[in-house]
Amino acid sequence: MTYFSFLMTEFCVLWRRKHDVFNAVLFFIIVVSLFPLGIDPAPEFLAPASGGILWCAAVLSILMVIEGIFKEDYRDGSLEQWLVSGLYLPLLVLLKLIVQWAGVVMPLLMVMPLLSQMLYLPSGSFWVLIMTVVLGTPSLFLIGAIGAALTVSLRQGAMLVMLLILPFYLPVIIFAVSAIRASQEGAPYFGFLAMLLAMSLLSLVISPFMTAVAVKASVN
């Protein structure tokens, strides 16, 4: 096994499991449509809230994906093979996360224009929304991977992952939504984007190592 063959395999497996990603996107759309139905379909409510709604829905659907990110690898013994491959485990984890991130966030971005229209997000704020998603979601994946790796040996780990991980998602949600809101109000939003980037970089430094520790502890 080399890093390259590992990467290729991850792409291949993700491609063959595309229905999972599809489900996550559907879930995203459903959650978003709950808000107008459940609270208020008036543009006066939806336009200011749209950033928050889109972000909360995105976080939930990402959580749904991230929870099972190592499940299959654990069951079929691939995690053991990662450990004995002589390759650097944090790097393997990072590669896998990059593939998963690309595979999940790209489809989400593709439905964003449609949904932001449906929620009356002002068109000037749309690119800010895209920027927050691009800059903020890496840290969601990186942090979520720690929880997923810790609970991989449990049969019913989904609830636990949510409980563990959601508090850590709060700052990301806060800064992302603040950026969108600031742009709607015409305030400077660049600082919020910088914060999102900083958080992604910080989790990039910490998470692969912590996830590697967790993977190693889970495989026994």
Partner: peptide, 12 residues
């Protein structure tokens, strides 16, 4: 595993 897990969560 529980030990490691709690430690990881604590540090994070």
């Amino acid at each position: 595993l529980a030990n490691k897990a709690a430690a990881v969560m604590g540090v994070v």
